[in-house]
Amino acid sequence: MEQPAEVPLAELGRRFRPALVSYFLRRVRDIAEAEDMAHEVLLRLTDIPLDRLRFADAYVFQVAANLLRDRARRHKVRSEYAAAVAASGDTAPELLDPARIDAGRRSLQALVEKLRELDERTREIFVLYRIENVPKRDIAAAYGVSVSTVEKAVAKATAHLMLLREDGE
């Protein structure tokens, strides 16, 4: 390989956007702002080489936390921020928490087994979209289905994986 390629924003988004939006949503209580902040975090991540980013979940979380603190200072709304954090409580686990990701690693085998339970096409679409970062339009075109079908297949597979959390925890 030559130079480490920059990670395209789209791929970063595929990986981290839902978790970042969820993270900010619990703190800013406004979807538009949460999305903006998620976008800002992603922009800051684009100059990290891909091979390092694969293991950078904790770093992503750090960037997000810093951004939140900066913004709170800038807007002089510290109390509001604190209130938001307090309101969110600690009931919901921190989704980008490294310890949590590690726990996820341990149940890797279960996750793969769960994916195996899905029908072949659903599993393939999910893997292509979620892991290989193939654009949904390309997947749809290759299999001759609609983009909405691709989205639904990805959602179905994700929902199936959610069963793991109920079984396991």
């Binding site: 694969r54 996820g104 793969v112 599993r123 679409i125 892991i131 290989e132 994700t158």
Partner: peptide, 25 residues
């Protein structure tokens, strides 16, 4: 819960267990 599952897949991405699924896809 959906976001957690979404993120969990990230951890599995490069694991040997996951690779056969990726090759198949």
């Amino acid at each position: 819960a959906a976001v957690a599952s979404w993120t969990e897949v990230q951890a599995a991405e490069a694991s040997p267990e996951m690779l056969p699924l990726r090759v198949e896809a």
